[in-house]
């Protein structure tokens, strides 16, 4: 067992973990932060996406001990301080960018990282950025639209209800 200390959603956390403990297991099983999901074994679906030191990573493809000293942010830490949905989360709701909700936390984390680097992405850039996040419900239309809307761009011309 190795002791790891990291900051998760603004709170310092210390735990003893085994070497092979993945960050996602640490979050879900040790800390009960179950908003981060596991959807595959091959690091492709992106349901487990979190931010480590401000960058999106797949928490299923990183060991907990590698996050020693890091700032980790999960979906549970994304809402505004008053508990209301933040701009990205609200855009997903406003534009029906989720259905079953399973890929959603990873989508929100991934999309948030995109806008940090590229505040006004094009449709093509949004679609490309989501290469590592698989959604089976939405056909992506409303996810892409939500992200464009969250970036402050006018999405009224994009077909939908």
């Amino acid at each position: 067992m190795t002791k790891v200390t990291m900051t998760i959603n603004g709170k310092s956390v210390s735990r003893d973990v085994e070497g092979q403990t993945l960050l996602v297991s640490f979050l879900r099983d040790d800390l009960h932060l179950t908003g981060t999901h596991v959807g595959c074994d091959t690091s492709q679906c992106g349901a487990c996406t979190v931010h480590v030191d401000g960058k999106s990573v797949k928490s299923c493809t990183m060991f907990a001990v590698e996050a020693e000293g890091a700032e980790v942010k999960t979906i549970e830490g994304m809402a505004n301080a008053d508990g209301s949905l933040n701009v990205m989360q609200q855009a997903f709701q406003d534009h029906h960018g989720l259905q079953c909700g399973y890929c959603t936390p990873g989508m929100v984390m991934s999309a948030t990282a995109l806008l940090k680097d590229n505040p006004k992405p094009t449709e093509a850039e949004v679609r490309k950025h989501l290469e590592g996040n698989i959604c089976r419900c939405t056909g992506y239309h409303n996810i892409v639209k939500a992200i464009l809307a969250a970036s402050g761009q006018d999405v009224s011309a994009i077909a939908a209800e």
């Binding site: 690091s43 492709q44 992106g46 996406t49 480590v52 960058k55 999106s56 990573v57 797949k58 493809t61 990183m62 991934s110 990282a113 995109l114 950025h129 290469e131 590592g132 996040n133």
Partner: peptide, 9 residues
């Protein structure tokens, strides 16, 4: 290479 999260690791 890969996707954005993969490129960060």
């Amino acid at each position: 290479i890969g996707d954005p999260a993969v490129r960060n690791r």
